Amino acid sequence: MARPEPLSFEGLRTYSLRERPSKVSVEKLGRAFEAGLSFRDFLKSLPRELAARDLLEVARRVVEARRGGRPFIVAFGAHVVKVGAAPYLISLMEKGLLTALATNGASMVHDAELAMCGNTSEDVARALRDGSFGAARETGELLNEAARLARETGGLGRALGKLIAESDFPYRKLSLFARAYELEIPITVHVALGTDIVHIHPSARGEHIGEATFLDFRIFCRLVSELEGGVFLLAGSAVLLPEVFLKALSAVRNLGYRVEHFTTVNFDFIRQYRPLTNVVHRPTLSGGKGYSITGHHEILIPLLYGAIVEMWEGGHADL
């Protein structure tokens, strides 16, 4: 077999670099800054590319939505609480920027334990050996009491918030649930039976938990029915909350509510199928826009918080 002749590039058509459409320009480059400058200066120094660009766009959309009286809903998994990001969400509620919260049962555990004693998140591998994992008495009693009281209180999340807010727990001011209750901001809890440690306690009643979380689902559907023009952000739930959101959106559209033009955002440190498909892509096909930003919650949430506050309190949404 004859050896192939090297291809000649003689005659290849070229064009001027200056006339070529390009995706990166010097205006989008990051800018180094000196120590001691403000957080706003830091934000302005970020590159206008990829995740940095998207983060600022998300913050701008939140600010524009709230200035227009539209909702900003945050759905989050327990990891957001465990890594210390709850105070940023509390501050957004207090500033009138965060209008509703949705979460899973594990978030109730960690939020309540932090409020009760300032600690949470046991060593599962060690405790599992002797079956003591998940057996903290106070946690089981409090959360199962919240499920029992949910019907008369107005929901599972609201019941837990009321119990913590009216307690003498030393760290109750750090509770997302308590602060949401005090500010009259909806916080719904979406429980999968058998997934949370309190379900193995003697005080657990399936009929209470099921009724309570179904009530919260219906409340969440009401919140989604009002999402037109707003922002829905998911942080740290790979399966449960994306599925809850998708069913809620389908239900409200089926009932005739117009929810088509809104923004969805997914924050997580791993790109997962359901958040990308059921939050970012499918819901926004009718005219909205979805963003997916990969990174750690303990970094992304403070950054987004800072950008939102700078744009909101600075009087304009331009950095």
Rank of each mutant, 00 (worst) to 15 (best):
F269S: 08
S175Y: 04
H208Q: 09
V280C: 09
H201Q: 10
K28E: 05
G36M: 12
A127Y: 03
R129P: 05
G157A: 03
P71L: 08
R60S: 13
A212H: 14
Q272H: 13
H208V: 12
G295F: 09
R148P: 01
A317T: 09
L193G: 07
N144C: 04
K247Y: 08
F245P: 00
H297E: 06
V265G: 12
L46N: 07
A2F: 03
A35E: 08
G194C: 09
N266A: 10
G68V: 12
I219M: 06
A125S: 07
G11E: 07
A204Y: 14
P6S: 11
F9G: 12
A125T: 04
V124K: 08
E166P: 02
G229R: 00
M311W: 02
A102W: 00
L163E: 06
A180S: 15
A238R: 04
V83E: 06
R61I: 00
L7W: 04
F76T: 03
S175R: 06
N104T: 14
R13A: 03
S22E: 15
G194K: 09
I270V: 06
R53D: 15
T99E: 00
E141L: 09
L29T: 11
G288M: 02
R172I: 04
E5L: 15
S203M: 13
A59L: 03
E138N: 10
L114H: 13
H79K: 06
E228V: 07
R60Q: 15
A235L: 02
G134R: 02
L183F: 14
H208D: 15
V124F: 04
E5Y: 13
S237R: 00
R205V: 11
H79Q: 11
V83T: 09
I185V: 14
L176R: 07
F42L: 14
G229H: 01
A146R: 01
H199N: 14
K44T: 03
R3N: 13
T153H: 03
S38K: 02
S25R: 04
Y257H: 10
